[in-house]
Amino acid sequence: MRSDAFQRWLVSSAVDTLVAEASALLLDLSGGQFDLEYVKGVFHVIDHNEADARRPVKTLSGGETFQASLALALSSQMGALAAAGAAKLDSIFLDAGFGTLDEETLDTVASTLENLAASGSRMVGVITHVGALAERVPVRFRVTRDATSSRIVREAL
């Protein structure tokens, strides 16, 4: 048993666990359409709406890519991948992608984030220009700027 083979096996095992949990999240986010898999260093989706076709993730639309990325980012396994003694990943900021989502998918994503916040397992910050999503965030800060400075104001709910 070579030492580099052990490291590859260990990383592969960790990624497999991450992808398994992210796949379950993606299945929920996509309304049952997609599963995620990672084979030989390449991510694929299983498209259940297309007779379980297996295809590269690069074929996903903007909104679908956002969902797959979100599923990976929200996996509780992300924190487990940190080295011993490293900073704990118990918060995440999402910036971009919300504008690519249709109304139904945006609602699913917002509900997922609300459920995550309610569980208390992770703090999720959202940076968005999408009003429908901003309305659902319980604590909001509005950032404005003029020619010389920026202001941050906490909005009363």
Results as ranks from 00 to 15, higher is better:
66 F>K: 07
108 T>Y: 03
64 E>Q: 02
97 G>T: 07
47 D>R: 02
86 A>L: 12
94 L>T: 12
106 L>K: 07
103 E>I: 01
83 A>C: 10
62 G>Q: 03
60 L>F: 15
107 D>N: 12
100 T>K: 02
113 L>Y: 02
78 M>P: 04
68 A>W: 01
116 L>R: 12
76 S>M: 12
96 A>D: 13
70 L>F: 02
46 I>R: 14
67 Q>L: 08
79 G>I: 04
108 T>F: 06
100 T>I: 12
103 E>W: 08
108 T>G: 13
58 K>R: 15
73 A>I: 05
79 G>V: 01
77 Q>N: 15
52 D>H: 05
66 F>D: 11
77 Q>W: 10
90 D>N: 06
42 V>C: 06
76 S>H: 14
43 F>Q: 04
119 S>W: 06
101 L>T: 01
89 L>T: 01
43 F>K: 04
77 Q>M: 15
73 A>P: 05
61 S>L: 02
91 S>M: 09
61 S>F: 10
82 A>P: 11
64 E>T: 02
105 T>G: 04
110 A>N: 03
83 A>G: 13
54 R>W: 04
119 S>A: 15
72 L>K: 05
52 D>P: 09
119 S>C: 10
103 E>H: 06
111 S>D: 08
110 A>K: 08
42 V>A: 13
117 A>H: 13
56 P>I: 02
64 E>K: 00
76 S>F: 11
115 N>F: 05
115 N>R: 14
75 S>H: 10
80 A>P: 10
68 A>N: 08
117 A>L: 06
120 G>V: 07
57 V>E: 01
59 T>M: 11
120 G>E: 05
94 L>C: 13
116 L>E: 05
43 F>I: 04
85 G>N: 10
57 V>T: 11
98 F>A: 08
101 L>W: 03
48 H>N: 11
47 D>K: 00
43 F>Y: 04
115 N>W: 03
84 A>T: 10
118 A>R: 07
67 Q>K: 06
69 S>N: 11
103 E>Q: 04
115 N>S: 03
97 G>Q: 08
98 F>S: 09
118 A>I: 02
77 Q>F: 09
114 E>N: 05
80 A>M: 12
71 A>M: 01
98 F>C: 06
46 I>L: 08
66 F>S: 14
